[in-house]
């Protein structure tokens, strides 16, 4: 019993560690890809590991007061916690212990911690940046929540692990609910704060917004947080619509299935991330109210259409996955 439990905990720790590593790698790849789009060579793909290492090894680190410390602690702990509740490559992690709604709210913990730390610095740029981030959240959550609702209604579950099983036995979300998948991908662009929605950290406008006063280890931990959140957000999409990358049933194939699924999951999140990065490379950014209007217009309409589809299929046609 206790041994099983320890093995589980160890596995979760390993997966979380790998997630952060993958996140940093993805950031490096994004820089490289963007550089190629811009006719440049770009930094080596492992550049972000060096950056994090350097930031954590800085000699002085300044803070304004004790509330400042909330930011890195809550951000990193929160994002790791959210990752732990997310199945990765078919491995359930803790997703049997809490469902989508819990995950949704856990995802707010790092954001809140970040916002607290940013607000503690008394820099108006940070205040404006957090305002923009919160407004952006209100914007993209509208379509995203409708998408989640469509999924939960259609698959009749709020549990991610059950959702994965049902997708494996019935059909992937992107096949069953393609309209919702489109809305979710649009929402994902805002969730990842890639252009045209990188409004909260717009350097030309508010000098990197909430990050403005963070440096040294604070920034390093926030970088780890953003690495984790890249994996978190892409995995969320993959888990919801691409069956979490589960192609082989672990019940039949055992350890091989885990390895294969992990690789497939990796490829899937890479594709989702690349789509976001390429859009990021060729778009300017919106103003915040334009982003808000955009999200409450088109993606919301698409998400509502997806919801109607899910509703009709589940309630009137009686399709039960």
């Amino acid at each position: 019993m206790i041994v099983d439990w320890l093995i589980q905990a160890g596995l979760v720790a390993l997966y979380l560690f790998l997630a952060v590593v993958i996140g940093l790698l993805f950031m490096g790849i994004a820089r490289k890809v963007t550089a190629r789009v811009q006719n440049r060579v770009g930094p080596p793909v492992y550049q972000n590991f060096l950056d994090v290492g350097k930031l954590l090894a800085k000699k002085t680190n300044i803070k304004h007061n004790w509330i400042f410390d909330f930011a890195p602690l809550f951000a990193l702990a929160g994002v790791l916690l959210a990752l732990a509740y997310l199945p990765m490559g078919g491995y359930k992690m803790l997703s049997g212990e809490g469902d989508l709604i819990l995950l949704l709210y856990i995802m707010a913990i790092p954001a809140l911690g970040f916002a607290l730390g940013a607000g503690a610095s008394a820099n108006p740029n940070a205040g404006v940046g957090v305002m923009r981030a919160l407004m952006l959240m209100l914007s993209y959550e509208m379509p995203f929540l409708l998408v989640l609702l469509a999924l939960m209604i259609f698959y009749n579950t709020a549990s991610l692990s059950t959702l994965l099983e049902k997708q494996m036995s019935f059909a992937w979300g992107i096949v069953a609910l393609p309209i919702s998948a489109l809305a979710a991908d649009l929402a994902l662009q805002g969730m990842m704060m890639e252009k045209p929605f990188d409004i909260p950290i717009a350097p030309h406008e508010i000098a990197s917004g909430p990050l403005v006063e963070f440096g040294g280890k604070y920034l390093g931990m926030l970088m780890l947080y953003s690495a984790g959140s890249i994996v978190l957000e892409t995995t969320l999409f993959v888990d919801l619509f691409l069956g979490g990358g589960v192609v082989l049933n672990p019940a039949h194939y055992g350890i091989i299935a885990y390895v294969v699924n992990y690789l497939v999951w990796f490829v899937f999140i890479f594709i989702v991330w690349m789509i976001a990065v390429l859009i990021n490379a060729v778009f300017p950014r919106f103003r915040i109210e334009q982003a808000f209007k955009f999200y409450w217009k088109w993606p919301t309409v698409i998400a509502i259409l997806g919801l109607i589809q899910a509703y009709i299929m589940s309630v009137f046609m009686g399709v039960v996955p």
Partner: peptide
């Protein structure tokens, strides 16, 4: 996980600066 974060965090001591020592461009 919070203690993991704390463990990374307390590696270095931070210096407290005045709240008004801010980035004013």
């Amino acid at each position: 996980l919070f203690f993991v974060a704390v463990a990374i965090f307390i590696m270095k001591r931070a210096r407290v600066v005045n709240q008004y020592d801010n980035y004013f461009a």
